[in-house]
Amino acid sequence: MTEEKWTVKFVIFRKKGDQPPRYDSYVLEVDPDEYVIDGVERIWAFHDRSLIFAHACHHSTCGACGMRVNDVEKLTCITKIRDVTTNGGSLKIEPLRNFPIIGDLVVDMTRMYAAMDRVHAKAVHPLSAAPLEGEGIRPPKDVPRNNGDEYLRLADCIECGLCISACPVAGTAENYLGPAVLAAAQLQGLKHNPDLLDLVDCADGLWRCHSAYECTAVCPSNVDPGWRIMDLRRQVVGERIKRWFVKA
């Protein structure tokens, strides 16, 4: 960080109950290395106590503070102001798309949680279920062990909803499971979880995906849902062929 100060206009989406939506502007002096959520919280603290926005951990472990920043889905607690605007520039802050709006910047993500629940996505899993930094997307060959037991860690997917907001398909097909959910199914694997097959192998499952890869572009947490959906298709085809032989 520096002593540098920028003047930035925050243009915030506002909506209360049944009232029509509007945009309110607030001009803030900011340190460009502050995060977007810091600016939003300051607007609440010093300018307008009626503003509502979701946030909790402020360091990308909880996934609560997803918003659209200048038309792109961002986890606002790890998005530096410097990276999304300029001195004298503006920041348009809107709620995530493809979820019902509760008010202002807050959306109801029940759609995603319900689907994550249906594929019983794990919140904590062994280290080998996902690689660590720099090892690509596939599980590493050498997984460190804790006196024989494998270490556990919180899953990569923080259920922030950015991928569902960015997905061009999720906007038109409200029953589409969505990228985060299909990625969670892929991570568990159909081989060991055959009950997931019918859930994902359907019109509202992985065949709805148009391979736009917007999910992967906005994912703040190394999940790469686009790649995982393609891999899940390979798994489905494999399971179908296997079943064909079993039936015969």
Binding site: D31, E41, A45, L132, L154, A155
Partner: peptide, 28 residues
């Protein structure tokens, strides 16, 4: 460690109003 991160903490100082406290650069 937490997910793929490391988190370092923390400092300790007193204030009057907890509604908004900036993140000080020297603490970082």
């Amino acid at each position: 460690p937490q997910r793929r991160m490391m988190v370092v903490g923390t400092t300790s100082f007193t204030i009057e109003d907890p509604d908004y406290v900036p993140v000080y650069e020297d603490h970082v």
